[in-house]
Amino acid sequence: MSERLAAWKPLLYALADGASFLFTTASGLLVLLALVLVAAATAVAGALRERRLLAEAAGRPCKPAEAFGVALARLGSLALSFATRLSLLAGLALALVATIAAADSLRRLDEYVANRERIAELTATVRNLERRRRVADVSVLASSGGRFVAEFTYYAGDGTRIPQAQRVELRGRELYVDAVVCSFAYSEIASGRESNLALPYRAFSDEVPAAEGESLALLDELGVPRMYRLPDAELYGIAPGKFAARLQDVAAFLRDEAAARAAGVVRSLQGVAVHRPARPGERFTIWVEATGGITIKDDRVF
């Protein structure tokens, strides 16, 4: 049954879209008016040609007043014909309204089902991501003359170090690592839990304003934070393909609040910049916590 309905949907949607365009938009109404005018002009032209032929057959010219009368008569006839078919036209209008309503309802139903699937996939995606994650090791390589150099070594989703380190040199004596934190609320979905995902994106200092800070190279070529790319074997509750697709949605949430709110699972977006004094030789690790944004922890020798 649903397959049959699905087969008819494109036709129904096309009909509904066409009717909706013609009767509810200014361009559609202009098209309709143009069609009516063309039909009226064709009918009047036909009547005038017929009268001219009759006049020629009778050996007399068709006078303008006569032509005007013929045109008026034809237009009147058209109006009368329109009036006698009002019930048919009303029926047609009703059918079109019903078609538009049915198509709209079906579309909303489709959207509802799709949104439910999407929310379920997003929820599964966030649950896969919400584990505590090591984002980067930071080493303060040097600090002198009111400047410091820090080296960031990033981690992939499977916990392995990414070989290319990033060096950041800033003026000042405190290193700030800034992140966007996206708080997901599940209250409307299931268990009322909350979860945060964070995307560190820039470094600045106590002397360098945030707007003049250095960008952190944490995104991969698809714009997804490297630490959120998980190996397929670690995923649960969602297929790898869907996880990859939803992961891009989640990454988009961290860049676009409108998209985040539209998805219906985001409670708030804000920035959090954690910071520590940049002393030479100091090493610390930046973590994205499952529930607490980002934190800095000392590096420990075990």
């Binding site: 804000q270 910049a273 954690v274 910071h275 800095i296």
Partner: peptide, 19 residues
């Protein structure tokens, strides 16, 4: 003890264009 964690700074902020 180290496992208590150390002092750190945390600056919460709005994000221009986002929130």
């Amino acid at each position: 003890p180290k496992d208590l964690g150390g002092v750190f700074g945390s600056a919460v902020h709005e994000v221009a264009g986002l929130a």
